[in-house]
Design a protein around this nucleic acid. Sequence first.
DNA 1: CAGGCGTGGAC
DNA 2: TGTCCAAGCCT
Length: 297
Amino acid sequence: MTTPAPLPVADLARLHDELLDWFDRTARDLPWRRNASPWAVMVSEFMLQQTPVSRVLPVYEAWVDRWPTPAALAAEPTGEAVRAWGRLGYPRRALRLHAAATAMVDRHGGEVPSSLDDLLALPGVGDYTAAAVSSFAFGGREAVLDTNVRRVFARVVRGEQFPPAAVTSAERELATVLLPVRDAHRWAAATMELGAVVCTARSPRCDACPVADLCRWRAAGYPAYDRPARRGQAWHGTDRQCRGQLMAVLRDAPGPVPKSALDAVWADALQRERALDGLVADGLVEPLPDDTYSLPS
DNA sequence: CAGGCGTGGAC
DNA sequence: TGTCCAAGCCT
């Protein structure tokens, strides 16, 4: 069985050339693109998992300044990582980054590994982050499939408004076929950049797109996504919102807080206790003997 | 593998 | 306002 060409060869070559050229001209000057260490690249990738660039920037700068190596972070209590994470959201990422730093000290001499398998074995590193670190920190040739790239490929190549809800094997194959022999790491950055600043989810700026004339979704007249809409994530009144409130109290306090301070931020006692238990189980909160709570040590 | 997991900005 | 969305990972 052979994989059909996703685009005519001539179009494929133009797609590569136009996109790489556009990226060279217009790429944002982001700190993790400025000759950053592999560790700094990894830090940025953890923070950028589901969090916008604008909110990551200040936290990233403070983080790599304070902990310039995996060993520096691994030497600190996990609670310090959680506090420094600030309001980026999904604070378990801070724990996983700390655990990844510890694992790199233990298994890789304190260095970020360059192989995909070694990266994937680290806590908090999945398919995307492993490929991204391999590409952006080491110049590796890997298919990098994030939400931006998936959307760009869905539109330009498949002629559809949005990619499937979950990554499919067809998407992986397509990304592999499209991966250029040379400059694969720049291709990865360029396709992500296009999705982030031009081919956006809500209102794409096709007038600024360097490959608009190759785009099958555009050529087809922008047909609307026809599959069932993804259910939006509930938020108000959820355990997740409650956990966020509790974590905010602990982050903003210099030390342990009495349980009454936690009780004050959420009315439903049953839900509050369940959320607090969950945070303790996750390692985000440490209960102390005197009925106080703190970030973990 | 569908659902849980934070937070805030844009519309 | 509420809804959608943002360089995912884990179970």
